[in-house]
Design a protein around this nucleic acid. Structure first.
Length: 424
RNA sequence: GGAGAGGUGUCCGAGUGGUUGAAGGAGCACGCCUGGAAAGUGUGUAUCCCGUGCAAGCGGGAUCGCGGGUUCGAAUCCCGCUCUCUCCGCCA
């Protein structure tokens, strides 16, 4: 969530920024936050005053008791007791305002960075870089959902039987390909300075709030109600939350982690004709990179992460483009996001395989993730993350782009991991 | 799942109602001592909020797992929750 101190000092900047998201009621949202904040501060000032008074008098009672002046102590005690109701009321008010402010701030999305273009939808995203030739497929080329059947490597029917739609079963070389990609991505990330984490696949409620999946987006997560745990929609959630409620020392920074996890998404209401096959799943595999950075370094880190992700796609020999998301297409928590899209030649579509975001202090503020500078001052940190990479659409593009009459060619970089150079 | 024990500051650890934000120790930082270091010695060493100030700071409030209660006053008493540890059970 946004910092209330930031809103106090930069109300207009925040409003201008939020308008880039197409947020019509930015003014009302922010002014309401400032209004609650004002009420809260007034309430706190009064409560503090009364508490100070009552603390001082209580102390006197103790001293009088010690001195044996029980009568005076008794009189004072009655006097102090009379403030109790008022104090209780003030404290209730204060707690109410604090809660109200917190809930209200949860409703306000992050303010897009300066460089983020205004826009409504994906149509307004900007293609900032494109790489690789668009493949021309031979006649009779198949989309990946046909290829996986032809070579019997991924089985939706079986997944449907044991679980449900959107939970495919990977078989034989299909399974091996998954493992190969995961290992390849992890090894590459390690070489790039990311230390590996293998976190739990279920998280508690506090973690959901920390990275911004909760409140309001619980519809996107599977929930284990018996234990009030959530299946992670991305490794971002457990890995970033490792640092919830921590104050890092300057020498601990930057933090760079990579983790592989399966990701579980309900994707409620987002199914349609264009999400066939591997394009959208309820469970998929993803390797995620996470960085925690000092504010002044975070945009450099964003570029670094993008460059890293691009290098991965290039090693897989897939054509891709890099999109700077417009305000309206960015996630709620993000200040700036680049999407990497690979071209799937049979579908003739660009598929998003990575989303690299800088959240600035938005998550850190929720999580109380801070660092102590060399002077001992404490500051919120910036959090960033990116897919590096999400597997299903990579697999879709690999299958479609690399098909010929003899089978599917495996890119060179991957062969040491698959142990085969062709699926046939 | 059953029984018991316990959650205090960076760490260890004292503390069963009244200047206790919290003894003592360790660690760490700075100073003294030293040719330098160790030892010794002195000082300091949590976070959040409100107010004030350009700032360093200063004043006030809150926080001893979390939430509630009793009380003029709670780390200390009561209730609920949660987590950890030990034993038993179960088990990859």
């Amino acid at each position: 969530m946004l910092q209330i101190t930031y809103l106090r000092e930069h109300r207009d900047t925040a409003i201008t920024g939020l308008h880039k998201r197409g947020l019509q009621d930015a003014v009302q949202l922010i002014d309401r936050a400032l209004e609650i904040d004002q009420l809260r501060r007034t309430a706190q000032a009064r409560a503090d005053e009364l508490r100070a008074l009552s603390n001082a008098e209580s102390k006197k009672i103790g001293e009088l008791m010690k001195a044996g002046k029980t009568e005076e102590a008794h009189a004072l005690r009655q006097r102090v007791a009379q403030w109790k109701d008022e104090l209780k009321k003030l404290e209730d008010n204060l707690a109410q305002y604090e809660e109200e402010l917190r809930l209200h701030l949860y409703k306000i999305p992050n303010v897009p960075a300066q460089a983020v273009p205004a826009g409504k939808s994906a149509d307004d995203n900007i293609n900032v870089h494109q790489h690789g030739a668009i493949p021309v497929l031979p006649a009779g080329a198949l989309p990946h959902w046909d290829l996986i059947k032809k070579y019997d490597i991924i089985d939706f029917e079986l997944g449907n039987k044991i679980t449900g739609a959107g939970f495919p079963v990977y078989k034989g070389k299909g399974a091996k390909l998954q493992r190969a990609l995961i290992s390849f991505f992890l090894d590459e990330a390690e070489k790039a300075g990311y230390s590996e984490m293998m976190p739990p696949h279920l998280v508690n409620e506090a973690s959901g709030y920390g990275t911004g999946q909760l409140p309001d987006k619980e519809g996107q997560m599977y929930c284990v109600t018996a234990d009030q745990l959530y299946l992670i929609p991305t490794a971002e959630v457990p890995i970033t939350n490792l640092y919830r409620d921590t104050i890092l020392n300057e020498q601990d920074l930057p933090v760079k982690h990579v983790g592989y996890t399966p990701c579980f998404r309900r994707e409620a209401g987002s199914w349609g004709a264009h999400v066939r096959g591997l394009n959208r799943l309820h469970q998929f595999d993803k390797v995620e990179i996470v960085q925690i950075r000092k504010p002044e370094e975070s945009y450099r880190a964003l570029d670094e992460m993008c460059a890293y992700v691009q290098s991965l796609i290039e090693k897989l020999e897939l054509p891709y483009r890099k999109m700077l998301l417009c305000g309206g297409d960015m996630g709620f928590n993000s200040a700036m996001t680049y999407d990497m899209e690979v071209y799937a030649a049979a579908q003739q579509r660009w598929l998003e395989v990575s989303s690299v975001s800088n959240f600035e202090t938005y998550q850190a503020n929720r999580m109380k993730l801070r660092y102590r500078d060399s002077k001992g001052k404490i500051h919120l940190l910036h959090t960033l993350n990116g897919s590096a990479l999400a597997l299903p659409r990579i697999v879709a593009a690999l299958l479609e782009n690399n098909q010929d009459e003899k089978g599917i060619r495996i890119p060179k970089a991957l062969i040491p991991y698959t142990g085969f150079d062709r699926i046939s």
